[in-house]
Amino acid sequence: MPKINAYIGFNDTCRQAMAFYREVIGGELTLQVVKESPMKDMFPGSHQDMILHASLESSDFTLLATDLPGNSSVSPGTITLMLTYETKAEMKSAFDKLAEGGNVTHPIMEFFAGTMGNLTDKFGVKWGVFSAEK
């Protein structure tokens, strides 16, 4: 059974926004800066101080975020629904079903933290799928 979380895109304000949300709703904040990640060489110098991935978590919620625009510019407040699966097979099945009639923005790929992909479904909803399994 997947876990669903909101993933918010920011334009270089992720650090400040997530710190604000921590003050308001609590939780433990984790920030990963591009230049401190195994993916740092994939990004230009102008992106090195941006937040690659932020996570604000408690026992009741998980809020995820990034500063990175991906293949297109990010409008502040853009939200992607993230599905997190135990297995890569479950993740791929959900991805394929959501992609029917939609638009794949990032095909499924393995990276240092697992496997992921992004798409916009046929209704215009942005989805990300993730599994820690490689």
Rank of each mutant, 00 (worst) to 15 (best):
F20V: 01
A113W: 11
S55C: 14
V74H: 04
T62D: 02
K40D: 07
G117F: 06
G101D: 07
Y7W: 11
F61C: 04
K35N: 11
V24N: 03
Y85L: 09
D49L: 02
S75T: 15
V104C: 07
T115C: 15
F123Q: 07
G114W: 08
S55Y: 08
A99L: 03
H47K: 15
Y21D: 06
F111N: 12
S73A: 14
F61P: 08
T80E: 12
A94G: 03
E57Q: 15
K92Q: 14
K88A: 14
P2N: 04
D12H: 11
H106V: 15
V34T: 08
G117Q: 04
T87N: 07
G101A: 10
I79E: 05
E36R: 04
S55M: 13
W127P: 09
M91K: 00
T13G: 01
G27F: 05
L64Q: 10
F43K: 04
E28S: 10
G102S: 08
I51G: 06
V34L: 05
A94E: 12
E36G: 03
L52C: 01
I108N: 04
T105Y: 01
E28K: 09
Q32M: 15
E100A: 13
G102A: 04
A54D: 03
F123E: 09
T80A: 06
N11E: 13
G77K: 09
G114K: 05
M1P: 12
Q48P: 04
A65V: 05
A94M: 05
M116I: 10
